[in-house]
């Protein structure tokens, strides 16, 4: 680990890199933002933005369950709850008795309310308010290790499952006629989103995690013309806003997550602006 640190210090000769928490935060951002960029492409394509938002909100219940059970490390309860919540949402969605938006909204508000009720009993919610905004500077080196593992698993899934997932998203009946198991692919993808959202919620924050998932992909769509460009631009935009956001927040003294979101949103509007100019010309 020390060698990695010293490499970072030589490659990046800036005063802020001296602090270990900045090194950790930078490492975390370099792993987490491309991951968000990749997942975002499919979330936007398959119109799952509301779904990932609901998952983020449900984190409150995950934490509160941990608090009730007296578990110190709430990561585990968060993760288990997140996965169950995602699978439950998929199951209810498939019964098609109520519209998807409504179902997700109901479950999102319910799980948030349950979390708030439990965590605020005795009037000490302030202890948990950090969850809302998150703090990337608090990430430890072990947690970065776990992030790397999640990153690798996601990449493997993406290489083997992306085509099927994409096919199912474009037209389910057509995918079925090609013997693609749509529900299984959708469940796998939901579980991966759940794991990543739940695991990174402490550093990114419930209120803004969805913005980080959606914005890079949404900006990339403004000028990409195929899947390869879509992914490439999304990763670059995500990484760029992550790193500049971290540095700016260090100098200005603001929370890192929201700073990153503002930069990503700024990039979205710039790309949107250029697209509309190009469209008018063409």
């Amino acid at each position: 680990m020390d060698t990695l640190y010293s490499i970072m210090e030589t490659v990046l000769p800036f005063p802020w890199i001296q602090y270990d928490f900045m090194k950790n935060a930078l490492l975390a951002i370099v792993i987490i933002t491309p991951l968000f960029g990749i997942l975002g492409t499919m979330i936007v394509n398959n119109k799952m933005a509301f779904f990932s938002d609901a998952l983020g909100h449900s984190a409150l219940t995950g934490v509160s369950i941990g608090a009730i059970l007296g578990i110190v490390d709430t990561n585990l309860t968060l993760l288990v709850f997140g996965i169950l919540f995602a699978l439950l949402l998929n199951k209810i969605k498939r019964r098609k008795t109520v519209s998807t938006d409504t179902v997700i909204s109901v479950f999102s508000s319910l799980s948030m309310a349950i979390g708030l009720v439990i965590l605020s009993r005795g009037g000490n919610f302030s202890k948990y308010s950090g969850l809302l905004v998150g703090d990337i500077l608090s990430i430890s080196i072990q947690e970065i290790g776990t992030l790397v593992i999640i990153f690798i698993i996601t990449l493997i899934f993406w290489f083997f499952g992306f085509n099927k997932l994409h096919a199912a998203g474009v037209n389910e009946s057509l995918a079925r006629s090609k013997k693609i198991n749509c529900n299984f692919m959708e469940d796998c993808f939901s579980v991966i989103i759940a794991v990543i959202v739940m695991f990174s919620i402490k550093w990114v924050g419930i209120l803004i995690i969805n913005a980080l998932l959606i914005l890079p992909a949404a900006a990339s769509r403004n000028f990409a013309s195929n899947m390869r460009e879509y992914h490439l631009f999304s990763i670059i935009i995500s990484l760029f806003s992550g790193i500049t956001g971290l540095i700016i927040s260090y100098f200005v003294g603001t929370a890192t997550g929201p700073t990153i979101v503002i930069i990503a949103a700024f990039l979205f509007f710039i790309t949107l602006f250029f697209r509309s100019i190009l469209n008018h010309k063409g």
Partner: peptide
Amino acid sequence: NMEKNTPMSVYDLFAGYISNSPIF
């Protein structure tokens, strides 16, 4: 399922259904 600016070429659309070679 497709919107006005969906970044999907005909190759992407086609290969998604007939091949496992990752289109991204």
